[in-house]
Design a protein around this nucleic acid. Sequence first.
DNA 1: GCGGAAGTGTGTCATAAGTCACATAAGGGC
DNA 2: GCCCTTATGTGACTTATGACACACTTCCGC
Lengths: 224, 224
Amino acid sequence: MSKQAEFAVILKMNPMFADLGADELQRISNLCHTQHLSSGEVLFQKGDPGNALFGVRRGQIRIETGATDGSRLTLNFMGAGDLFGEVAVLDGQERTADATAGEATELFVLRREDFLSFLEREPKVAIRIIQLLCQRIRWQSERMEESVLQPLPVRLARRLCALAEDFGSEVHISQEQLGVFVGAARESVNRQLQAWRKDNILDLQRGRILLHDLTKLNTIARNE
Amino acid sequence: MSKQAEFAVILKMNPMFADLGADELQRISNLCHTQHLSSGEVLFQKGDPGNALFGVRRGQIRIETGATDGSRLTLNFMGAGDLFGEVAVLDGQERTADATAGEATELFVLRREDFLSFLEREPKVAIRIIQLLCQRIRWQSERMEESVLQPLPVRLARRLCALAEDFGSEVHISQEQLGVFVGAARESVNRQLQAWRKDNILDLQRGRILLHDLTKLNTIARNE
DNA sequence: GCGGAAGTGTGTCATAAGTCACATAAGGGC
DNA sequence: GCCCTTATGTGACTTATGACACACTTCCGC
């Protein structure tokens, strides 16, 4: 499969591009480049202009933020097939976090200038993008109301399910970071995880969580 | 001032159109129509296709939702100069709430089909709109994290300040509805308002709140 | 293998906010 | 005026979660 075709597949998996036609996807894919990073190399830092969209071809990128106390907290992991910077490529605003390669990584790069001039030549695609952004705005505001008002177990279950999508049943994350993800204290996260461990829903090890029963976790996440 | 010029002024006041040039605003304004509603008349209902953007020229529109128990809760009031349906006009999705005229009302109407074909002819404006939507997405996600994690007094103060922008220092709203706005129980809202009344920040009457000290309220809203 | 750092487990306490249960008050229609 | 509905005020209780404190464990470098 050509590099471009591979990138098209990744785009297609992202909700933001999923509804575009094969034809349009292919023309966007033709704009892409690739970039290699060695482990630990910095892709961008907070404050850099957001001048591209990235797709992970292989390897891993960590999205992290330098906390005020000097410690670093990982906000997200992007693995093979993940796309990030969809918004930045469109509006060029500053990056709001740092991105570093967690291992040797190869990225697809779609540069802002290339994408914008493409949109200018293809107003129909631009309108399509507008509609997708609108969907995202709606989706966000639904989630906003819904999600944060949920009790901690629900938020935690949702996050774990989401992580399971990316990493399978063995999620490599500290309870501290999990707390940051769901907006809760580390101790509260720990207590909830302990409760689930007693119910054989999962198992705990230093720095990782083994998910045994995704089904139950999903039920909790739905909060029915 | 011509009808179109008046509409342009309203558009300009909305963050979504504020950064467009005078020239572009004027061309958009030229697409507008007007519509008259008598008091109590229904503008649209939940589930209707979102086929237009509206600006209130005079009068008042209530955005409300039929709760499952049959009672109606007002989610928002739109007064003269307010714009609503910015997202619907772009993506045409279903309305998520009902809109009714609270009094005799005259509206500016920008129809979806007119706006989209305008964007198709003017890809530069479309790209501009894309960037504005992106800003909104960023703004939303910042607020999402920030706002809902704030304690109730902060959320309440913010909402009251926002209402004061629209209605001046006499806000006509029930404590019940205020509770819905900030995602809190009516009783909690009442207790906080009572506390502020004791501090002479505001005064309470049946169905309305008199804001005496917006400055203090703003300080609380900033949560410093 | 020692020592420190980082991650984890748990008890105790404080607090914000929801829930329930009333009492009271203010308009509105007759 | 008189009732009825709706809005408001408040006390008592419960619960979820954060905050602090501290023990214990695992890993890693020297």
